[in-house]
């Protein structure tokens, strides 16, 4: 019993060390979203190509992806092939939020790189972005059948992230439904 007492500081130090070691390897950019399991916010924004007004009611039936992108955003180019493949193979509907961009530049970007989105709404002043807790492109939300936000992915969604995170998450959603 006496021995244990003398080792207590060492044990406390070891516990602290473990926590700090874990903390060292956490990605501080990936903030937990408070919007998980909350419904998407309402919006009424123009579509980037057609200028038609689009609202929450025009969104596809879930599960679908909501991708925050911008023509100025280099990481968006990195994840772009993944979205192109997903859309070409008809894996899952993808809707874009053209975040704090200029319409001309956004249209050019889609023409040059291809358009994986069913449509993209123009969030020029970032108001919808704020309602979604976005802090910069790219970010991708997974929306379920009931229009609830189920997962939020910060930064690039490449093939690896798709396979390791999104595929299991979508399977989970399908399991819930059945």
């Amino acid at each position: 019993m006496l021995r244990l007492k003398y080792f207590l500081p060492v044990l406390v130090f070891a516990a602290l060390g473990i926590f700090m070691y874990i903390g060292l390897h956490l990605n501080s950019r990936e903030l937990p979203s408070v919007l998980i399991n909350k419904p998407l916010p309402n919006f009424q924004l123009e579509e980037v190509r057609t200028n038609t007004l689009v609202s929450k009611d025009d969104l596809p039936e879930g599960p679908f992806l909501l991708n925050v992108w911008g023509s100025y955003c280099l990481p968006c180019l990195v994840e772009h092939p993944t979205f192109m493949r997903l859309s070409e193979d008809g894996v899952i509907p993808i809707v874009g939020i053209n975040y704090k961009d200029r319409q001309g530049a956004a249209q050019d970007w889609l023409d040059t790189n291809g358009n994986p989105f069913q449509f993209s709404v123009m969030d020029e002043d970032g108001r919808l972005g704020i309602d979604l807790g976005v802090y910069g492109a790219p970010e991708t939300f997974l929306i379920d059948k009931n229009g609830l936000i189920r997962y939020r992915h910060v930064s690039v969604l490449d093939e690896q992230a798709w396979q390791e995170i999104f595929v299991p998450a979508i399977e989970e959603l399908q399991r819930e439904e059945s």
């Binding site: 501080s28 950019r29 903030l31 704090k100 002043d125 970032g126 108001r127 972005g129 704020i130 807790g133 976005v134 802090y135 910069g136």
Partner: peptide
């Protein structure tokens, strides 16, 4: 500022900080 993380909204030039100041 959610983007720059170590600055307040006052001191940040990040896009989202601008928007939040506007809000």
């Amino acid at each position: 500022c959610p983007m720059c993380q170590n600055t307040s909204l006052t001191g940040s030039t990040g896009g989202v900080a601008e928007d939040l100041r506007r809000e």
